[in-house]
C-alpha cells in the first residue's frame, strides 16, 4: 500500500511525509508496548500505536519502520515530528481507535508483520 492509500483508509491527518516518499508498505504491527515492537523481526513496516511519546519515534528509527500512525485522535507535538524528520519516518494520526484502524487497514489488504492472512489465521485456528 502507498502512503496515500493508508491516509485515505484511515481518514488520517498527515503530519510529516519525507520528500520523495514513494514506497510500498505491505505489513503493519500495532502495539502500545515499545519492547514488543522491538521484538518484531520485520522492517519497512507501518506501526499503529495509541502511545504518543518520543520513544515511539526512537523505536521506529532503530527498527527501520517506515511510517507511524497515532490512533485515538492523538496529535503529535512539534518535537516528535522534528525527531521523525531526522529519522525519515512518515507520521500520520487518526481519530479511529487502534482496533478499528487495524481492521480497516486489514480489509484494505495490509498484512501483519509475519505476513499471516485472514484465511491462514482461520486455518490455524481449526
Amino acid at each position: 500500500m502507498k502512503i496515500e492509500e493508508i491516509v485515505k483508509t484511515l481518514d488520517a491527518k498527515i503530519h510529516y511525509i519525507p520528500e520523495g516518499y514513494d514506497i510500498e508498505i505491505n505489513n503493519a504491527g500495532a502495539s502500545d508496548l515499545m519492547s514488543d515492537v522491538l521484538a518484531y523481526v520485520a522492517q519497512d513496516i507501518l506501526l499503529i500505536t495509541g502511545l504518543l511519546s518520543p520513544q515511539v519515534i526512537r523505536t521506529a528509527d532503530l527498527m527501520d519502520i517506515s511510517a507511524v500512525v497515532f490512533t485515538r485522535g492523538k496529535i503529535p507535538p512539534e518535537e516528535i515530528i522534528e525527531e521523525a524528520k531526522k529519522a525519515n519516518i512518515a507520521i500520520l494520526s487518526t481519530s479511529l481507535k487502534t482496533y478499528s484502524a487495524c481492521g480497516l487497514l486489514f480489509s484494505a489488504g495490509m498484512r501483519s508483520i509475519d505476513g499471516d492472512t485472514h484465511s491462514g489465521t482461520l486455518r490455524d485456528a481449526k
Binding site: L33, M34, S35, A39, T49, L51, S53, Q55
Partner: peptide, 16 residues
Amino acid sequence: RERGFGAGMGLDNIKK
C-alpha cells in the same frame, strides 16, 4: 508503562 516500556521484554530482547 505509560511510555510503552516496562513490558518485561527488555532483557529478553537484548538476549535475542
